[in-house]
Amino acid sequence: MRFDHAEDIRHITPLWEGERFPNGRPKVPADILRRMRKITLEEAWGPLWHHGYQFQFEGDFKIVHPERVTVGRAVTAVMVPSRPDLHETLLRYGHEQEGRKGFFNQWVIDQLEEDDVVVVDMFDKVFKGTYIGGNLGTAISTRTKRGGAVIWGGIRDNQQVVQIEDINVYYRGSDPTAIADVTMVGMNTPTRIGRAICLPGDVVLGTPAGVIFVPPHLAELVVVNAEKSQVRDIFGFVRLREGVYSTAQIDSNWPLALWNDFHEWFRTAEAAAEYRHLSWERELEDAKRREDEGPSHEVRL
């Protein structure tokens, strides 16, 4: 059994066509991560659900900094209850064949890069299932800068961990015991977190409501869709306050005239400045096609 193996990681993430880390993990661009921090969980959830990714969200966590949004690239690990023969074999393999130091959880944290988030299936173990404490929490902060951890299990040293301001941790429970009686059987492999599945390189979006795992090949689509929804809402609020349109018109499938009004506002309005990297050619073409085909009464959801 190989840990963190590039060929295996590439094999399970074939839809990602962009840059990768040396270990094969998809490297979603930093600009997409930056933009992801400004969208809501629901804005990320919608496109994933409609593309058939219906097991990407889990909300049953405690959160170290519940007011904070956390975004990063997933580094995954799978732990199982300890069985002596398997445990000694894998621990020895990691030490002797792969040159790893310390215990299984330290192996994962030693691999972290900037903007990473550790995603760990601890099979909901809290007693002797404390994946991190103050020391490893500090190590995560040092390596990831603004990342964190999603742990389907426990943590310890909460009073120390909460003092680490630049990361966030999602976890199931707390206990003073150290991690014990567990064995890692996968590193940067598919990982189950409650009802959700996470792959290495997924974009982790952690919010006060829970965590959603965005497949890397859909990350840009999710961000663009969210940003378009946001700026359309800003325009809609402006025109509603001005009394130009009714709520029914704003919530409808916009006709070409309304799209043209939006497009002119989008080009010049200060409120739209941060969204001007977006293109609306497809939407304008669709509106023109609908006008040519006749009136429509669809409602925008």
Rank of each mutant, 00 (worst) to 15 (best):
W254I: 07
W107F: 09
P176D: 11
S296D: 12
F55C: 02
A219E: 04
L199C: 10
D157A: 13
P176S: 10
I167G: 06
G137K: 08
Y171L: 05
L218M: 15
G46T: 13
E7W: 03
Q163P: 00
V231N: 11
R267N: 10
F123T: 14
D31C: 01
G154S: 08
V169E: 08
H297Y: 14
F3M: 11
L284G: 03
T130V: 05
A287H: 03
G153N: 11
M184K: 04
F235W: 15
G129T: 05
G133W: 06
G153P: 04
D110F: 04
V126Y: 09
V69D: 09
E227I: 00
L221R: 07
H277D: 04
R300C: 10
K27R: 15
G201A: 10
S141R: 12
K145Q: 13
E96I: 09
T183Q: 13
S174W: 00
E283K: 03
P84H: 12
V299K: 13
M79E: 03
L41Y: 00
T13E: 02
Q159F: 10
K38Y: 08
V211I: 12
K125V: 12
V28H: 07
Q230K: 14
G201K: 01
F3Y: 12
A149F: 08
T191C: 15
P215C: 08
R267S: 13
K62I: 00
D233G: 12
I164C: 11
I39H: 04
A77W: 03
D251G: 15
P81Q: 13
W254E: 07
V211W: 06
S229D: 09
F61D: 02
Y93L: 09
N225F: 01
D124L: 12
R37T: 12
S229N: 13
H217M: 03
K101H: 10
T144N: 07
L221A: 10
R34C: 00
G94N: 08
L91Y: 12
T189M: 09
L218T: 09
D233M: 09
N188H: 07
T142V: 05
T138L: 14
V69R: 14
T70V: 10
G206W: 05
V80K: 15
I197W: 13
Q230S: 10
L90A: 08
N168M: 06
F127T: 13
P29K: 09
F61H: 03
D31M: 07
L278R: 02
G129R: 07
P14F: 08
N158P: 00
K228S: 01
T183P: 06
G99F: 03
Q249Y: 03
L218G: 02
A178I: 05
D124Y: 13
R92V: 00
E274R: 15
I212C: 02
P208E: 07
T142L: 13
W280N: 05
F262W: 10
G52W: 04
A139G: 00
E43C: 01
G52T: 01
Q159A: 11
